[in-house]
Amino acid sequence: MDQHAVGKTPLNERIATIVNYILLASLSIIILLPLVNILALSFNDGKDASLGGIAFWPRIFSVSNYIEVFKNPAVINGLEVTLFRTIVGTAVSVLLTAMAAFALKNRNLPGVGIASMFIVFTMLFNGGIIPFFMVLKMFHLNNTIWVYIIPTLYSAWNLILVRTFFQSIDPSMEESAKIDGAHDFQVLFRIYFPLSMPVLSVICLFNGVMHWNDWFSGAFYVTDEKLRPLQTVLQQMLTAAEAMRKNLSMNAMMSASSTVTSESMKMAMVIISIVPIASIYPFIQKYFVQGIMVGSVKG
């Protein structure tokens, strides 16, 4: 179709195509530039970087920033907390969400309509952060690792996404399984689960990214430093001086031989916090489109 059209394409359309390529290429560059800048800074000798002038390539290559960061117990601890909450939180949440969505897909079941309204309304209005915090206090969740996992088990948006996908699955399979004596759990895990991999991967990704990137609960709901996730450690290092002081051995940094500075370490921290997500998402990319598309169809 395009081949034979080329010759006839008017000049203004050809120019538009070229402009289009140029614009998209520059968009990619604009997105990548800050990343490359931070990457270069993180691999540059800290003292040298403080002289300024580093753009997209390290002037004096060094990995000592990363070595210093990994010597820091708060970073290791933060990494452990983040991994725990990401893995456990995501797994439990996806399971529970699938089960609830499985029940919610039966519109004719008594009470399901009301339950759906009950859930959807929470997307429109909420009590705000302070009463929420008081609820955490009421259930003694603050200052425990569960404060990351339990309050994020369900999200109305994910529930709707999965429910809509389930509704698109041919119900005759469920019916025939039931005639064979299967109960609901078996139907869910043997029939719906395998068929719903696209949408389940998408909510896995959503949950995983949310857990990995959440700095807020760690900053406001937790005071025990042993429970601080990586992003909160990062946020406090970036914004709060005192936290940085506590987390770094100032003496090691101040010593004459050290080439690491607090700034160069921060850059390394930023890169460390990005790498896992940035290396995983391209592989799940093909599922996004399918999964997200389902969510946009009205449920």
Partner: peptide, 19 residues
């Protein structure tokens, strides 16, 4: 299957509203 979900929203969405 639905019960924990409803308990969840009751505690973490509606209790704060009452709050």
């Amino acid at each position: 299957m639905l019960l924990p979900c409803l308990i969840f929203f009751a505690i973490f969405s509606y209790l704060p509203m009452a709050g």
